[in-house]
């Protein structure tokens, strides 16, 4: 009994963190990982971290948003196209962010107002945005805007002995987004309402919280973060292509789950979700080091996903059993 209780108290976040540390430690031992390996995890996955942050809000309320991959792609293609047409970055970036926000909010509105299944609505969103990408341009468009080029290359270099690890500004920006999200979730009424809605929608509305508004807002945020991720991705690749980021929503969802987010809502930490992204990045790195088929990444991620889903399920079953045991004592 006691053992069971302590087990459920070890938060999933701890498991995630331990997993990351062990994997990274093994990498240092066997593959000679350096500081730069660590920093590159951020450099290469900055866009995914930001997009995961957005979907994380949705998952916390117990919803799902599978449109984010398309939104990222749309943002890249549309901004590349606008920049090519000669619009300034100062116009393009706010515009695409606004579109992401508006699009996400519209999805949220449909889901909440008409009580539609989030999966179906965001599925339509996925189709819609992907189609817009190809309507704009089927060919890849390179970004040659000077501002983008400058920002894309902005980085900090360290010198540690003979190593020269570097971190790009946009990676730091992604870290800032994670910190900001953590702050919002912990210290604002909106953040706490998100958790409450995921814990029990009915209780939340009985306690007088603005459930519907919050649910619409998380989809809006998800769209916004996806377009923000898109901006970072266009800095990362300096191009926009209509078929990029297919299936990215799965990476984001798996990251969140591996990071300890409960897909039924209410439980999860943004740090966990971000570490989830890094774990996927690590697996990718190891697979590359080992010169393995890159698809081992997917298989390993899926195995982790499966493991975490089953742990979560076991925990909730344990919870039910514990409650039942108390009933027996009562009888």
């Amino acid at each position: 009994m006691k053992l069971k209780r302590t087990f459920s108290e070890i938060s999933l976040l701890t498991i995630t963190l331990a997993l990351f540390v062990i994997m990274y430690g093994a990498g240092v031992l066997f593959y000679g990982f350096r500081i730069s390996t660590f920093l590159n995890l951020f450099n290469d996955n900055a866009y995914l971290i930001v997009a995961t942050t957005g979907i994380f809000f949705v998952l916390l309320t117990g919803g799902i948003d599978i449109s984010i991959g398309s939104v990222v792609a749309f943002t890249c293609v549309f901004s590349a196209w606008l920049l090519e047409k000669g619009f300034s970055a100062g116009f393009v970036i706010p515009l695409v962010l606004l579109i992401g926000l508006a699009f996400g909010s519209l999805q949220g509105f449909l889901i909440v107002k008409f009580d539609l299944q989030p999966f179906i609505v965001t599925l339509a969103g996925l189709f819609f945005m992907r189609a817009l990408c190809s309507v704009i341009s089927k060919a890849a468009i390179a970004i040659k805007n000077p501002f983008y080029l400058k920002v894309a290359l902005a980085k900090i270099r360290f010198t540690l002995g003979r190593q020269h690890p570097k971190i790009y500004f946009y990676a730091l920006f992604a870290v800032a987004v994670v910190l900001g999200t953590a702050f919002i979730l912990k210290f604002t009424k909106f953040g706490r309402t998100v958790y409450a809605v995921g814990g029990s929608e009915q209780s939340a509305s009985l306690m007088g919280l603005p459930v519907k508004r919050t649910r619409v807002m998380v989809y809006g945020l998800s769209g916004f973060c996806a377009s923000l991720g898109g901006v970072i991705y266009s800095l990362y690749t300096l191009a926009g292509y209509s078929l990029q980021n297919v299936g990215m929503e799965l990476d984001a969802i798996s990251s969140a789950v591996i990071g300890g987010t409960l897909l039924t809502g209410g439980v999860g930490s943004i740090f966990g979700a971000a570490i989830g992204v890094l774990i996927q990045g690590l697996i990718q790195t190891v697979v590359t080091y080992q010169n393995l088929n890159t698809w081992w990444t997917k298989v390993t991620v899926a195995a982790l996903l499966c493991l975490f889903i089953i742990i979560q399920r076991a925990m909730s079953v344990n919870g039910e059993k514990a409650r039942k045991n108390r009933l027996i004592k009562a009888a």
Binding site: G199, S203, M207, G208
Partner: peptide
């Protein structure tokens, strides 16, 4: 009718 995932003190004060 409270939120099981929130802390005790939050359940008392939320909103």
């Amino acid at each position: 009718n409270l939120c099981p995932n929130l802390s005790v003190s939050e359940n008392i004060h939320i909103g």
